[in-house]
Simulated assay, not measured.
Amino acid sequence: MPSNEPSHEQQPAPMVVPRFFIKQRITVMVNRYEIRAANPDGSEGALMAFAEQKRMKLKEEVIFFTDESKSRPVFSFKARQRLDVHAEHDVFDEYGRPLGWFSKQFGASLLRSTWNLSAPGIQAVGQERRLFIAILRRLWDFIPYIGDIWVPFVFHFDFVDTATGQTVMVSERKKAIRDRYDVTVPDPRLDFRVAACMAVALDALQSR
């Protein structure tokens, strides 16, 4: 007789958050990120995690804490290689146990930023939604003088399951002086900690 129990791939992740926000604060040598819950009315809720990214590190590592006191780390991601455009980044829980990993597809990203995302039961690919904006962003950096002018291009990423084509995660950048992202996770198999790491990496590592 067939089993009525759900398969491993259908089981929800240990920590499921369908929607959250990311806000970036820029300083001279450190990027700071706040991850906040989304209230039922769509407004920003409680702080869920706080992270800092130190620039110019040989081996990328970002640790997420409960708050700005940085007294308790709760999850992190770390590159397997040093300053490598092909680097794979592992996501860990607060005890150092692996939760998933992600990496950038270097060849495809020359035209349109593309990422691999892996977690239990999930193999997904994320790509910039609008090819026109992707090309415009790249051209902007190479135009003399113009490329030095900061322009807040609004670009979004859609991650889809490679097996089913279903949406796994969406990160949408909002129009603001400081970077702000609205992240939705319709797939309950994707753990919040993996989604948060991927969403922060889309900002922190985008130029790599």
Rank of each mutant, 00 (worst) to 15 (best):
R112V: 10
K23C: 10
K70F: 06
V17C: 05
V154N: 12
R129A: 06
F106R: 11
L205C: 08
N31I: 05
P40W: 00
M1H: 11
V200A: 13
A176P: 01
L47H: 01
G165F: 00
H89K: 11
I133G: 01
V28S: 15
I133E: 01
Q11M: 15
E172Q: 12
F159R: 02
A163E: 10
A196H: 00
P144M: 12
Q53A: 11
A119N: 00
A163F: 14
P18C: 05
V85A: 09
K70Q: 09
A204M: 14
F192M: 11
A163V: 13
P152H: 15
V194S: 04
K54P: 05
L58R: 12
C197E: 07
R36S: 08
C197H: 00
F77W: 12
F159S: 02
R80Y: 08
A199E: 05
T66H: 10
F21T: 04
P188Q: 05
F75Y: 14
I133M: 07
R130Y: 11
V154P: 05
D161Q: 01
R112I: 09
R36N: 09
N31C: 07
K78D: 04
I135E: 07
A119Y: 01
Q24A: 10
A108T: 11
I122Q: 00
V183H: 06
Q123H: 08
Q123W: 01
W150V: 13
I133C: 00
V183I: 11
D93I: 03
D161W: 02
T184R: 01
I143W: 15
R72L: 14
Q10K: 14
G126A: 06
P14T: 00
D84C: 05
S171V: 11
V85K: 03
C197S: 15
P152L: 02
K174Y: 03
R80L: 10
P186H: 07
E68A: 14
Q206G: 04
Y181A: 07
V125N: 05
Q53P: 04
I122S: 07
S76M: 07
Q24I: 11
D187I: 06
V28Q: 15
A134S: 15
G100R: 03
L205H: 02
F92K: 04
H156G: 03
Q105C: 09
S109G: 06
V194N: 03
F21N: 02
L202P: 01
Q123G: 11
R193P: 04
A199M: 10
E44D: 08
Q206F: 13
